[in-house]
Amino acid sequence: MSDNKTLNLMDLVPGMRVSLSDGAVAEVVENPQDGSWIICRYLSHPAMPNLVEAGEQPVFATDIEGIVQ
């Protein structure tokens, strides 16, 4: 698994799944290619399960721990 020190956000494309620092797993919906944000849809979230039904959400680069294979 990659960490946010080696993960290049520019390489993330729609459909990829990422793990987040809070234990959530999200699917990339859009990558604005700014190197800081991606737009995701939460697939799971241990502390806030309502985010799974919340639709697209912005996720900041430092919150991304790695790519889920």
Rank of each mutant, 00 (worst) to 15 (best):
A26W: 01
S44I: 08
G35Q: 06
G55D: 05
I38P: 14
N8H: 11
N8P: 01
G15D: 06
A61F: 10
E56P: 04
R17E: 03
G15Y: 03
E65M: 15
V13T: 10
E53V: 03
D11R: 11
T62W: 12
I67V: 11
P49F: 14
I64D: 03
P32T: 00
M1Q: 05
I67K: 09
L51V: 11
A47W: 08
Q33D: 08
M48Q: 15
D3I: 12
L7H: 05
Q57P: 08
S44G: 11
R41K: 03
A47N: 06
D34K: 03
V68A: 06
P32Q: 01
L9S: 09
Y42T: 00
D22V: 09
A47Q: 04
M10N: 09
D22M: 05
S36Y: 11
S21D: 15
P14G: 09
S36W: 04
N31C: 09
G55C: 08
K5G: 09
L43K: 07
I67Y: 09
I67T: 10
V68L: 03
G23Y: 13
E27G: 02
G23N: 07
V52G: 03
S2H: 02
E30R: 01
G55L: 10
Y42C: 05
V59H: 12
Q69V: 00
L9A: 05
G66D: 13
D63W: 15
V68C: 05
V29P: 00
L7M: 12
A54D: 00
L7A: 13
D63N: 15
P58F: 12
R41D: 03
L7P: 07
D34L: 07
T6N: 07
A61D: 04
T6V: 09
W37L: 15
E27Y: 04
Y42H: 11
A47P: 02
H45I: 04
Q57E: 10
V52N: 01
F60Y: 14
V52D: 02
Q57L: 09
E56Y: 06
V18S: 13
E30C: 04
L7I: 05
S19M: 05
V25K: 06
N4C: 03
